[in-house]
Amino acid sequence: MKLTIVLIAASLALPLPVIAQPYPVKAVRFIMPHVAGGPHDTVARGMAQAFSQTFGQPFVVESRPGGDGIVGLSACASAAPDGYSLCLGYGSPFTLNPLLYAKLPYDTMRDFAPIMHLGFLYSAVIAHPTVPSASLRELIEHSKSRPKTITWGTFGPGSITNLYVEWMNRTLNAGFYSVAYKSAIPAATAVMGGEIQIAVLTVGVAAQQVKAGKIKALAVIGGDKRSGFMPNLPTMRESGVDLTLTNWWGLFGRAGTPPDVLQRLHAETKKLIDDAKFVETFFARQGFEFGDPVGGSPEQFAAFLRADGETNARTLKITGVRLDQ
C-alpha cells in the first residue's frame, strides 16, 4: 500500500506533456510592403476579413511602404517564425531588389516561406489622346525620330516601368525620356493632364479611363495573354517588345514557421481563391487576373519565384540598371 502511494506521488511530480495550442490563439498581422488604398490593399483587407471569421482571431493589415518594398519585407523577415506575422508581397521586392541592391536586410530565398501565388496585376501602356500613335509599335518608331521628347512616367530607377523604358531604349533604339513619379496614380494623372505623354496604369482602371475618353491604351504589360478587361488590346510581345516582367501578388510566411501552420494557411487561402464571389469582389474588381501558378502549391510558387528572378536578371543585364542602398 505504501509503495502504491509513493508511485502515485512520484507520477504526479513528473512534468506534464506540452499540448500544442490550436493556431491561432491571438491576432495575426498581414504585413504589406505597399501603401494603403489601391488594389493590393483591397485584396489584403478582404483576406483579413475572411480569415478573421475562419480562424476566430483578428487578422490585421499593417501597411509598411517605402524603400522599394524594403521596409515592409524587412519587417516580415525580422518577425518570429510562428505564423503571427505574414507577408502579402508583390514582385519587385522579392525578385528584383536582390538584383538591384548590393546589400539588403533580408534574403528572399532564405527568410521567407512561399504559401500561395495570389494573382497577376496586369497594366496597360496609356497615352494622352493627342499622342500621334495608335499602337506601341508606332509609338516606339515615333520616339526614334524624336529622341528624348516623348516623356514616360515611371516609378523611379529600380521600378519595373523604368526597366521597360530602359530596355526599349537600349534594345529597340527607342528614344523615351523617363520621368519619375511616386506611383501609378500620379503618373496617370499627369498623362490625363497633359504633363507627360506616356505612363502605365492597371488594366481595370485604364479601361474605365479609356471609355471616358481621357486616355488611350496602346498595349498590355505583364503577360503573354491579353487581358480580360481589354481583350482587343495587344500584349507587349504582340507589339514587338519581346519582354515580360510581371506584377504579381503572393502570400508568404516566415521561414521556419511550423509546417502545420503553413499548411493550414495554404488550405484556407485556397478556399478563398476557389470562391467565385470572393474572387469577383476582392480580386477581379481590382484588376487582378489569374493564371498559372495562382492557387497552386507552395512548391509551384517557389518555382515561379526562381523563374521570375531569372527573367529579371536577364533584363537587368541588358539595361545595366543597378542601385546602391
Rank of each mutant, 00 (worst) to 15 (best):
Q57P: 00
N173S: 09
G69L: 02
G253H: 06
V125D: 09
E138V: 00
T235A: 10
D274Q: 11
G56W: 08
F30N: 00
E289Y: 01
L86N: 06
V28Y: 01
L100Y: 13
D308W: 00
A10D: 00
D324I: 08
G256S: 09
Q263K: 13
T246D: 13
P132G: 06
P33L: 07
V220D: 01
V131R: 09
N169I: 01
P93R: 00
A75Y: 14
G240H: 05
T4W: 08
V203D: 09
S135P: 08
T130D: 15
A180N: 14
Q49S: 12
G240V: 05
T246H: 05
A302D: 04
K270A: 12
G67L: 06
L104Y: 05
P234W: 08
G296T: 12
P293S: 05
L272Y: 02
L218V: 13
Q53G: 03
Q57K: 08
P231E: 10
A10F: 14
S239C: 05
H34F: 13
T281F: 01
A77T: 07
A207N: 09
G119S: 07
E138R: 04
N169P: 07
R64N: 05
E141W: 03
Q286L: 01
F288T: 03
P259Y: 04
V261E: 02
V279S: 02
I221K: 07
A77K: 06
W248K: 04
G256R: 10
V43G: 02
V200H: 03
H142T: 13
S92C: 12
P231S: 11
V71F: 00
T281K: 14
N247F: 13
R29N: 15
F229D: 11
A303K: 09
E299N: 05
P129T: 10
L305K: 02
S297M: 08
F283M: 15
P147E: 03
T246C: 03
H266G: 10
F176V: 00
H266F: 14
N97I: 09
G89S: 15
N97W: 12
